[in-house]
Design a protein around this nucleic acid. Structure first.
Lengths: 340, 340
DNA sequence: ATGAAAGCGCTAACAA
DNA sequence: TTGTTAGCGCTTTCAT
């Protein structure tokens, strides 16, 4: 049995009878000035000794780690896993590794994690911002720390941004319900004044109503305090507003609660209430009735975000800030079927 | 505006008028031998300069990074996200950061990722093994590389292992169906000869049938080649075996396909066919009819795995290998309701 | 074509 | 109580 001993470049050099420099050069593909024999022996010794470069030492010299970090605000939503898969795939393709953490929506935690990433000399970060850390984000920008802000907009922040057109998404949802004969459409969203995602989806909803000739009097908006009270809030709202015949849910967790609430109240979908949800989750088409959703290209968002970040990391010159806006898509199913 | 410049311990030392050693000591809490004034000035300068230690340099010295790596085989299953959340929470509590990658079930990729983790001097790894890399796993064990194998057993491998009792899970599922009047119970699983997870769930299913007085003639087993053909395979099987009145699905993705197939065949759940699925996913109780499932404590699995790993990392002496077995739980809902 | 030596930022013996 | 120095494993300039 071989006792595990860490083998360094010096061991390789010694055994191969050359200098560390030579080994380093060969390992890094600077073949140009080396004898074929030297190359061969060195490579052979590397194999024999199972030498693996120490990334720490390498990084210390070059101040590059080939690691990017991602700060998510939530591990409970399928959407983020698809994003993550995209990010991970890009990392694999580009030779990066991925550090991940979960701010859980807490700005303090977010700040701490970002600082840890920086201490670890992570080459750049992808972040779904809590939006409560404006000064921190600003600092990252002025420090020219490679960064991509994802899924949310931070007002006034001059940073790479990858988002989906949420106004459009909201518009499509509400418009679809109107087209299918609904007249009193409720929009359900999380209560959070600062998050562009929710604001925009609601804005789109409002625009759809207006462009269909309705007025502000026809806006029905329910803001959920948090997921735990969602069910209760929704039931109460629907009881107080029995005219509601269509619901646009801006979040897939809330959609599940909505369905639950409707079932409890014995309101039939779609005959009495039509539903459009957000995010075409894996279960959307399997629930009863199959759910009409606004689909977001989560995987591509992740993929492009990481690509954008790595592009910025690699480019020596100043890269211009880039703004990628993906388009949502309506997937029509039974839950929003036309009222006969 | 301040130009971003990386400030090192030397900068702090100089500005504070002390040596690097002193700064280092104070930063690491070795206050014991320092003047209160020294401490105060140093800390003040650290603040002013916004000094952040370079984790690379630190790690190079100590050969410890306070990073653990996790190798998942799948980013598409809610189960893993709950596991991940548990891991991440433990990391946060214990001051570790997390690197993540996705082997996607590919042994080659898995091996590459593990080696990368090692090059990065990751302190330890959590892995859901592809099971096709036996020599690699053995080597990690003999090298005493801190590791926790999760969710699957590797035969003969003397490593920390955190799993759920899958035999019990399979048993509970089948037994529950029998208790509720089902007589011809199909078990659906992925075709993969080597994965303990599937084998054990099927074993439990068989044990349940036998202990209920049935014989091997009553075993109905469908092995799915891959998720894309699942629907087709299931439909064909059910057509060929119309006596099936109960189905145990060993995986939540397959369950969705199963439901789809039953709908297509116009078989009513639970009146004609009773269903028990695996993993109490977020949508289980919302689909139609609400799904009876075998629930696994995914979050706790993640949490305990990371704790176990970090315990091993921190312990100087040889730790004894630990084997944690979680118990599954049956969540009874409508999909398996008794035949009247 | 190859090597010696300096140095990345930090810690820790050892000295003072 | 504090500082000097060596060195973690690697890359890279500058010699040769």
């Amino acid at each position: 049995m071989v006792i595990a001993v860490k083998v360094t470049i010096a061991d390789v050099a010694e055994k191969a009878g050359v200098s560390k420099t030579t080994v380093s050069r060969i390992l890094n593909g600077n073949y140009d000035h080396n004898t074929p024999e030297t190359i061969k022996t060195v490579l052979k010794v590397v194999k024999e000794l199972e030498y693996r470069p120490n990334a720490l030492a390498k990084g210390l010299k070059s101040m590059k780690t080939n690691v990017i970090g991602i700060v998510l605000s939530n591990f409970r939503n399928e959407f983020w896993f698809n994003v993550l898969e995209g990010v991970e795939d890009t990392c694999k393709d580009e030779g990066y590794n991925l550090m991940i953490c979960n701010s859980d929506g807490d700005p303090k935690l977010e700040e701490q994690y970002i600082k840890e990433f920086q201490m670890r000399q992570v080459d750049g970060i992808v972040i779904n911002p809590t939006v409560r850390n404006q000064p921190l984000y600003e600092k990252l920008v002025t420090d020219k720390y490679p960064m991509v802000v994802i899924n949310r907009k931070i007002p006034g922040l001059h940073a790479n941004n990858v988002v989906v057109d949420n106004i459009k998404g909201g518009y499509m949802a509400a418009n679809h319900l109107l087209e299918n004969g609904r007249e009193h459409i409720l929009a359900i969203t999380y209560k959070n004044e600062n998050i562009s995602t929710w604001q925009e989806r609601i804005k789109g909803y409002q625009e759809a109503l207006i462009s269909n000739g309705l007025t502000e009097d026809s806006f029905y908006l329910l803001e959920i305090e948090n997921i735990r009270v969602a069910n209760k809030q929704i039931k109460e709202y629907l009881l107080d507003n029995p005219m509601i015949d269509g619901v646009f849910s801006t979040n897939n967790m809330l959609t599940l609660e909505l369905i639950e609430a409707l079932k409890k109240l014995d309101k039939k979908v779609p005959s009495e209430v039509g539903i459009v949800g957000y995010d075409d989750t894996i279960w959307s088409k399997h629930i009863h009735p199959p759910l009409t959703t606004i689909k977001q290209p989560a995987y591509d968002i992740g993929k492009e975000s990481a690509k954008l970040l790595i592009r910025e990391i690699k480019s020596k010159e100043l890269t211009t800030i880039k703004n990628i806006i993906f388009q949502p898509e309506l997937v029509a199913r039974e839950s929003s079927k036309e009222i006969e």
